[in-house]
Write a protein that binds this DNA or RNA. Structure first.
Lengths: 213, 213
DNA sequence: AGCGTTCAGTGAACGCCGTCAAGTCAGCGC
DNA sequence: GCGCTGACTTGACGGCGTTCACTGAACGCT
């Protein structure tokens, strides 16, 4: 866990390169330890070949680092979902199912990154306005909502948004429950996704189309 | 934050009383700090009027303490849901909605306890078999599943279980997303619950009743 | 009455952690 | 050659979970 020795200090004016080096190290380390809170400033800086306090040249505190990492993780999730979606171009319902599968697969294969997305244990909690996380969340959601709408163009934009919300929250719910209670007897993932998809964007959907009216 | 001074050591043979005193202190402190990871051994033992190391007379480590607290929190959630359910006896659909409302209310009003239920950041992760958490989760779920079945007795037991799973994961999803991304534009809670209820246990439900067949 | 054991609980220390204030030291403009 | 600036380090602080050796009162037993 000691510092990698090779590093040479950045040339004058290039100090910002350490910032991305730290972000890279943090992202990698996070994939390794699979838990945001196990990601220590000392481990990250050591991996970057630098002293612990160097982190504070580029981030106000640890929270700011993990927030930056979060945005990266969210982007990775969105990329993966986009790829899955593209594989089923032209079949909207299959696309929704593929998005769901991709979501669960990401959570399973990159638990550290997935956990970062929903990380809320900040050391200092008070101010923290919108730090880009809500924006990243919206991006994922809009992708799902658009897919839902493609399944049934009659669906208004707002309705599609709501349906997307339900799909997303349900997916995250399964991930969270599975993690917290591994022995919980969930239905098989494939069946579960089929059922979820059928319920919200299935062809004979619309049973309770607009109960909010 | 220093130790409460009043305490007298328990009489011989009554050492176990400290165990519940520590659990009480931890539960209370958790409601206060609203975050499992901010719950420190030193703070809990101090609140119980005892030295930090006394904790280890009754719990192997901090993980064991928080696991015991988790079970309590889960029970508190179940109690609250049971109460909400009882208020709408005879109206199954209203009961499901009430369960949803109670769930969201518990998460909102007791964030620390709710977070404990889904806490996974253990310090040591390896063994940890079923510690009663999955059992407590099942209790909540079975309550929801039973309510779903009452809405439509045609629903098989297994189907009701699956529907319950969806309801639960969706509820938790909303809580988690709201916490991680407070500015996320969720539909109003009441409308959202109405829609959720209608979709899964609404009278004209059954549009995609058994896509897994 | 005295003794050994058991039991409830302590105190000091260890190695981690995030963070801060002050310091080092190379490279640039002059 | 000088001083400054920018990149990064050193050393320390307080808090954390946890370990180990310890204290002192209450008990059973002779």
């Amino acid at each position: 866990m000691s510092r990698s020795p090779a590093r040479r200090r950045n040339p004058r004016g290039e100090g910002d390169r350490l910032r991305v080096a730290l972000l890279d190290a943090a992202t990698e380390k996070l994939a390794e330890v699979q838990d945001v809170d196990a990601l220590s400033v000392r481990a990250v800086t050591a991996a970057a070949g630098v002293s612990p306090t160097s982190l504070y040249l580029h981030f106000a505190d640890k929270d700011e680092l993990v927030t930056a990492v979060k945005v990266r993780c969210f982007a990775a999730l969105d990329e993966r979902m986009a790829a899955a979606e593209a594989e089923h171009d032209g079949d909207p319902v299959a696309q929704v199912a593929a998005l769901g599968r991709a979501y669960l697969a990401f959570a399973r294969e990159q638990p550290g990154w997935y956990a970062a997305i929903f990380h809320t244990n900040f050391r200092k909690d008070l101010p923290r306005g919108d730090d880009g996380i809500a924006g990243a969340g919206l991006a994922v959601l809009l992708r799902v909502a658009a897919a839902a709408r493609r399944c049934d163009p009659v669906l208004g934009e707002e309705d599609a948004f709501v349906v997307g919300t339900f799909l997303w929250t349900t997916l995250h719910g399964r991930v969270a429950v599975t993690k917290a209670m591994p022995s919980f007897p969930f239905p098989d993932e494939e069946e579960w996704i089929a059922r979820l998809t059928a319920q919200w964007v299935g062809s004979s959907r619309g049973a309770a189309a607009d109960p909010t009216a």
